[in-house]
């Protein structure tokens, strides 16, 4: 479904964030990407939907070359790929409902959307998605009045509005406490299992990765160093990925 070929990203100033990363993602997988901070996980996520322009390599989404797509094509691809962010990235002053509806912007009539006019079935769908993540009662609250966990659930509802084929979750639980993290990841797991939506997720904690992932991929200094099943990440690999000094911390 998603093929990443020899992806390289060098930022201005010479920082080599990604070095020749090649990866294939199948439909329905819950792929977890792990690695130290600064190993290139976020860059990899953002190169998939070209929020960051790769310096070299190709990203093929269902056979379409994302890296060479025109702006029109890119928008059409982007609306099929939803993204959930570490810092939620909600528009603070807007209501929860407006934030969720903004997930549908790639599909609705652009001129109507400029006047905040959405078709009633879209508003229905938004309310259904909010119910699915359990915060329908907050639909008209301002987004910045919600707690972290609630905001992330709004983010997931926004992602669901796109009816995506792929969800990219960039460290969705790094800013949340352990219990809320499990709550959010359970939502993602349910979406992956019940709707068949492929999920690629960056995580910091290995036991979260083991618990929710069907496949684990590890980055170190921009290079892919591990690709396999969660159970295969033993102590040796742990040291390899996180460094000799690292200790495993549990969040279960």
């Amino acid at each position: 479904m998603l093929e990443i070929r020899h992806l390289t990203k060098v930022y201005e100033g010479g920082v080599r964030a990604l070095e020749d990363v090649s990866l294939t993602v199948d439909e329905g997988e819950f792929l977890v990407v792990i690695g130290l901070s600064g190993s290139g996980k976020s860059t990899l996520m953002r190169c998939i939907n070209r929020l960051v322009e790769p310096t070299g390599g190709q990203v093929l989404y269902r056979g379409i070359d994302v890296t060479a797509a025109s702006p029109e094509e890119l928008r059409r691809i982007r609306r099929r790929i939803a993204m959930v962010f570490q810092h939620f990235n909600l528009v603070r002053r807007s209501t929860v409902l407006t934030n969720v509806l903004s997930g549908r912007l790639g599909y609705v009539n652009p001129w109507a959307s400029l006047l905040h006019r959405f078709p009633p079935q879209e508003v229905q769908r938004a309310m259904q998605n909010l119910e699915r993540v359990g915060i329908a009662e907050k639909a008209y609250a301002r987004a910045d009045t919600l707690s972290g966990g609630q905001q992330q659930r709004v983010g997931i509802a926004r992602a669901l509005m796109q009816e995506p084929e792929l969800i990219l979750a960039d460290e969705p639980v790094s800013a949340l406490d352990p219990a809320t993290s499990h709550g959010v990841l359970r939502h993602l797991e349910a979406i992956n299992r019940d709707d068949g939506i492929t999920v690629i997720c960056n995580l910091h904690f290995l036991d979260l990765a083991r618990r929710y992932g069907t496949r684990i991929v590890a980055l170190k200094e921009g290079r892919l160093i591990f690709d396999g099943k969660p159970a295969e990440v033993d102590r040796g690999w742990f040291r390899e990925i996180y460094g000799q000094e690292a200790e495993e911390v549990g969040v279960s």
Partner: peptide, 28 residues
């Protein structure tokens, strides 16, 4: 820039991005 990125990632065009991510932040 976070909300801007998020709205852009949904496939919105530039004008929609401005209306949904830029305008609410600059009103006050």
């Amino acid at each position: 820039s976070g909300p801007l990125e998020a709205v852009r990632a949904t496939g919105a065009n530039e004008l929609q991005t401005v209306v949904y991510a830029v305008v609410p932040q600059i009103v006050p």
